[in-house]
Amino acid sequence: MLSAPLLFLMHCMINLRRRIKNLATKMVITSGNEEDRGSQEKENKEESILAMLGIIGTILNLIVIIFVYIYTTL
Score class of each variant (00 low, 15 high):
residue 1 M to S: 08
residue 2 L to W: 07
residue 2 L to K: 15
residue 2 L to V: 05
residue 3 S to A: 08
residue 3 S to Q: 09
residue 3 S to V: 01
residue 7 L to T: 05
residue 8 F to V: 05
residue 8 F to Q: 14
residue 8 F to R: 11
residue 8 F to M: 07
residue 9 L to V: 10
residue 9 L to C: 05
residue 9 L to A: 13
residue 9 L to E: 15
residue 10 M to W: 11
residue 10 M to C: 07
residue 11 H to G: 05
residue 11 H to Q: 13
residue 12 C to P: 00
residue 13 M to N: 12
residue 13 M to D: 13
residue 14 I to H: 07
residue 14 I to L: 15
residue 15 N to C: 11
residue 16 L to N: 03
residue 16 L to S: 08
residue 16 L to W: 06
residue 16 L to G: 00
residue 17 R to I: 08
residue 17 R to C: 03
residue 17 R to D: 11
residue 18 R to D: 06
residue 18 R to Q: 13
residue 19 R to E: 15
residue 19 R to P: 00
residue 19 R to M: 14
residue 20 I to K: 04
residue 20 I to S: 02
residue 21 K to S: 15
residue 21 K to G: 01
residue 21 K to E: 15
residue 22 N to A: 13
residue 22 N to T: 06
residue 23 L to S: 13
residue 23 L to E: 14
residue 24 A to C: 03
residue 25 T to P: 00
residue 25 T to G: 09
residue 26 K to N: 07
residue 26 K to D: 08
residue 26 K to P: 00
residue 27 M to S: 04
residue 28 V to T: 14
residue 29 I to V: 15
residue 29 I to G: 05
residue 29 I to C: 09
residue 29 I to R: 14
residue 29 I to K: 13
residue 30 T to F: 13
residue 30 T to P: 02
residue 32 G to P: 02
residue 33 N to P: 03
residue 34 E to G: 00
residue 34 E to R: 09
residue 34 E to A: 12
residue 34 E to Y: 09
residue 34 E to T: 11
residue 35 E to T: 12
residue 36 D to R: 10
residue 36 D to V: 11
residue 36 D to A: 11
residue 36 D to T: 12
residue 36 D to F: 12
residue 37 R to N: 12
residue 38 G to F: 07
residue 38 G to I: 07
residue 38 G to E: 13
residue 38 G to W: 02
residue 39 S to I: 14
residue 40 Q to R: 11
residue 40 Q to K: 10
residue 41 E to P: 00
residue 41 E to D: 11
residue 41 E to V: 04
residue 41 E to C: 04
residue 41 E to H: 12
residue 42 K to E: 13
residue 42 K to V: 03
residue 42 K to Y: 08
residue 43 E to F: 05
residue 43 E to R: 07
residue 43 E to H: 01
residue 44 N to G: 03
residue 44 N to K: 03
residue 45 K to G: 03
residue 46 E to S: 04
residue 46 E to V: 02
residue 46 E to C: 01
residue 46 E to A: 08
residue 47 E to Y: 04
residue 47 E to H: 05
residue 47 E to L: 11
residue 48 S to P: 00
residue 48 S to H: 05
residue 49 I to T: 04
residue 50 L to C: 03
residue 50 L to F: 01
residue 50 L to R: 15
residue 50 L to S: 13
residue 51 A to I: 08
residue 52 M to T: 10
residue 52 M to D: 14
residue 52 M to C: 04
residue 52 M to F: 12
residue 53 L to Q: 14
residue 54 G to H: 02
residue 55 I to L: 11
residue 55 I to H: 12
residue 56 I to M: 09
residue 56 I to Q: 09
residue 57 G to K: 03
residue 57 G to F: 02
residue 57 G to N: 06
residue 58 T to D: 05
residue 59 I to G: 01
residue 60 L to F: 06
residue 61 N to T: 14
residue 62 L to N: 05
residue 62 L to W: 00
residue 62 L to F: 07
residue 63 I to Q: 02
residue 63 I to P: 00
residue 64 V to L: 14
residue 65 I to K: 05
residue 66 I to Q: 02
residue 66 I to N: 02
residue 68 V to I: 14
residue 68 V to K: 11
residue 68 V to A: 10
residue 69 Y to F: 10
residue 69 Y to K: 02
residue 69 Y to G: 03
residue 70 I to D: 03
residue 70 I to E: 06
residue 71 Y to H: 04
residue 72 T to N: 08
residue 72 T to D: 07
residue 73 T to M: 10
residue 73 T to S: 12
residue 73 T to R: 08
residue 73 T to Y: 07
residue 74 L to S: 04
residue 74 L to C: 00
residue 74 L to K: 07
